[in-house]
Amino acid sequence: MPHDHHDHLSPSGHPYRPDDDHPLTYWQQMEIAIRELLIEKGVTTAAEINAQIDAMDSRSPANGAAVVARAWTDPAFRDALLADASVASRDMGFDIGPMKLIAVENTADVHNVIVCTLCSCYPRNLLGLPPDWYKSRAYRSRTVKEPRKVLAEFGVNLPDTTTVRVHDSTADMRYIVIPARPAGTDDWSPDALARLVTRDSMIGTGIAKAPESV
């Protein structure tokens, strides 16, 4: 019998990991119950819910990267973005719904990083869903207490001359960081520059990629 001796190993020779299937949690059951009730009562339809899920899934950090690249290349847009990021993003053509957005700019002297200590507020309507670590208790609690240690763990080591500004997204606003534009990109087009802008650089846990990396 082929499985007699190596039940605990996969054909690749690695141990099997246990399935992580588990019964629905309380809140998963509540979500299903409320969704089904809203459909039964005619408040919404399954098609509307699917359309909303599709709209959210279609949003990605590429939207934010385009906004950042334009801010790097268009001084009037940069000023508008810093004055009211919701209006500037909408004017650029992004459907961000009712989201109220603030853009904060990294400079030679200031590094910004975004966290939501109370829950997981994130500019989903522009950048899509947040990374799992953004919602973790460790990230949420440590970023306000020891931001430079957290940033160092992400590979961002800042000199003592840089001021770190942590933004705790506690209420109605959402935040995007405009990372510093990499040196040596003076003649780059906005489309090319956008490829240097990572999701993490717009949270503040990363910096824009080096030009030679793309």
Binding site: T163, V166, T170
Partner: peptide
């Protein structure tokens, strides 16, 4: 102010939205 004068970078800041 938030963590005490012995915070390693006392001049770094935290911004929050408060009603």
């Amino acid at each position: 102010e938030v963590w005490g004068a012995d915070a390693p970078y006392p001049d770094d800041t935290i911004d929050a939205e408060i009603y």
